[in-house]
């Protein structure tokens, strides 16, 4: 149970992210979560959207450098200590988190090297994994 993520290679300069977002608006693509990180010269912006394939096509048509990959999506109950608890489990099971970001604070995307392996491990743990359908069911209609 994982969700597709689109990563875009962008120069860290004003207006570059905006251009991508405008294209999403144009194509009626809903952004459910994102994270932007940079190395000084360039940045990688990662998106979780409602239709990853179509979003990727839009970006490709613009000539963007993109990559589609899978990330785990974990749903956290909205109460203190949940993030610490979930990250604790991941650490105890010796999974290395490459990066993580939250969609809304109770849904966080987590990238690890071996997604199926991590899914296998986390299945029996007290964490709740979400897939695209779960996210849609939960988020659609929420302002």
């Amino acid at each position: 149970m994982s969700v597709p993520q689109i990563s875009v290679f962008l120069e860290s300069r004003p207006g570059h992210l905006r251009r991508i977002l405008d294209a999403f608006v144009e194509a009626d693509i809903n952004v459910r979560g994102f994270s932007a990180s940079d190395t000084g010269d360039y940045g990688v912006v990662r998106f979780i959207v409602d239709d990853a394939n179509r979003a990727n096509e839009v970006l490709k048509a613009m000539g963007c450098a993109t990559a589609v990959s899978e990330v785990l999506c974990l749903r956290l109950p909205d109460r203190p200590g949940e993030l610490a608890r979930v990250m604790g489990i991941i650490a105890e099971r010796d999974l290395n988190v490459l990066y993580t970001y939250s969609l809304i604070s109770t849904y966080i995307a987590v990238c690890v090297k071996d997604i199926p392996h991590a899914e296998e491990i986390l299945r029996d743990e007290p964490v709740e994994l979400a897939d695209s359908k779960d996210i849609a069911a939960r988020l659609d209609g929420i302002a």
Partner: peptide, 15 residues
Amino acid sequence: EIKPETFSDSFEEMD
């Protein structure tokens, strides 16, 4: 300028 297909979602690989 990198070609679109050169990009990978890994800073390690890009570096």
